[in-house]
């Protein structure tokens, strides 16, 4: 499909036969416009990298503490002292929790829609998941802060009772505004996108393989295990990484459910911590000139991390060109 436009006319070397001048000019203008737009997109990406790096370099050179390892954020003080250690930890931990919770469930839902649900139910379900992917993040944040947080203390007490010995799940009461809550909320938020991409992949699993397995007497689960899951593995991995990219950069939902502090607790259930995006949203209004540059520096780190994650996801997708998660 991609290549069935006439290749000859697309060639930048214009045809040797000179036609009317006017049409040539129109073509040249149009080509220039469309190529210019493509170049403009590249320029924007480059500008993002350049401007963020510039401001970040200013901030880091003014920083009196170690930018990578300091456990504090006093960017507005003189001299400014700030470091991203706590933010990096919080961002990675909350996103990992989100992945661990969301990916198995999303694969389950995708299989439910593609192979288990009655067909009359499957199509509307697909629409519902599509619509849920469109719910704005601030609405998730509002729900998380006013509904999820009060309802999670029960679960936390239970986790503390039975798994407190592990050291990472101790809970001393108080509002459940911890990295773990942020992780659960992020899991709910990335569920639709991971489900959508996985579902598309599962749907493309070769029918012949499935029917062959059925003909050999496989049960439904065995069909999925031997023909659908191996086919969809790379798709599920890239779907998860797209989800991870979303979770890493999510701002408002985390900013509403987390009570931030510049400490790393051993327990995930203990309120405190922070993420890159949350820290930017929370600290922006009080920030002075250096403070803003410091926030931009932390944003640059987030930018690089999401670029790496998304790039990896794209590379995996690129091996199988048929589906792209970009429009999910």
């Amino acid at each position: 499909m991609a290549t069935d436009h006439p290749p000859a006319a697309a060639d930048p070397a214009h045809p040797a036969v000179p036609l009317k001048g006017a049409t040539r000019k129109g073509d040249r203008i149009f080509l220039g416009l469309s190529r210019g737009s493509g170049i403009a997109l590249l320029a924007i990406m480059a500008a993002i990298a350049v401007f963020l790096t510039w401001r970040a370099a200013l901030a880091i050179s003014a920083d009196e503490a170690n930018f990578l390892t300091a456990f504090e954020w006093d960017a507005n003080a003189t001299p400014p002292r700030f470091g991203i250690a706590v933010l990096a930890f919080g961002t990675v931990v909350s996103s990992l929790i989100a992945m661990i919770v969301a990916v198995p469930v999303a694969v389950g839902i995708a299989l439910f829609i593609s192979h288990y649900a009655p067909r009359k139910l499957a199509t509307p379900l697909g629409y519902v998941i599509d619509l849920l992917a469109a719910v704005p993040s601030i609405v998730y944040g509002l729900w998380g802060a006013l509904f999820l947080v009060p309802h999670l203390s029960g679960l936390y007490e239970w986790l503390d009772d039975y798994f407190g010995w592990s050291g990472i799940l101790t809970y001393e009461g108080g509002a459940a505004r911890s990295l773990f809550t942020a992780g659960i909320l992020l899991a709910i938020m990335i569920l639709p996108i991971v489900t959508n991409v996985s579902r598309e992949v599962f749907r493309q699993a070769p029918k012949m393989h499935e029917e062959a397995a059925l003909a050999l007497g496989a049960t439904r689960w065995e069909v999925i295990r031997v023909s659908v899951l191996p086919f969809g593995r790379s798709g599920v991995i890239s779907a998860s990484m797209l989800g991870l990219g979303r979770a890493l950069g999510e701002t408002m939902a985390v900013a509403t459910v987390l009570s931030p502090s510049f400490l790393i607790h051993a327990s995930l259930l203990q309120p405190g911590g922070g993420t890159f995006a949350q820290n930017i949203a929370a600290g922006f209004k009080e920030a002075g000139a250096t403070g803003r540059d410091a926030l931009i520096a932390s944003g640059l780190v987030l930018f690089v991390i999401t670029l790496l994650v998304n790039g990896a996801a794209r590379l995996i997708i690129a091996r199988r060109k048929e589906y792209s998660g970009a429009n999910a």
Binding site: L42, L302, R314
Partner: peptide, 24 residues
């Protein structure tokens, strides 16, 4: 290059886009 960077651009966190416009 454009195809690749369009893919990459879909993953930019909204707050980073905000910071870019803020800085420039």
């Amino acid at each position: 290059a454009v195809t690749f960077f369009v893919d990459v651009m879909t993953g930019i966190p909204s707050i980073v886009a905000g910071l870019f416009v803020l800085s420039f």
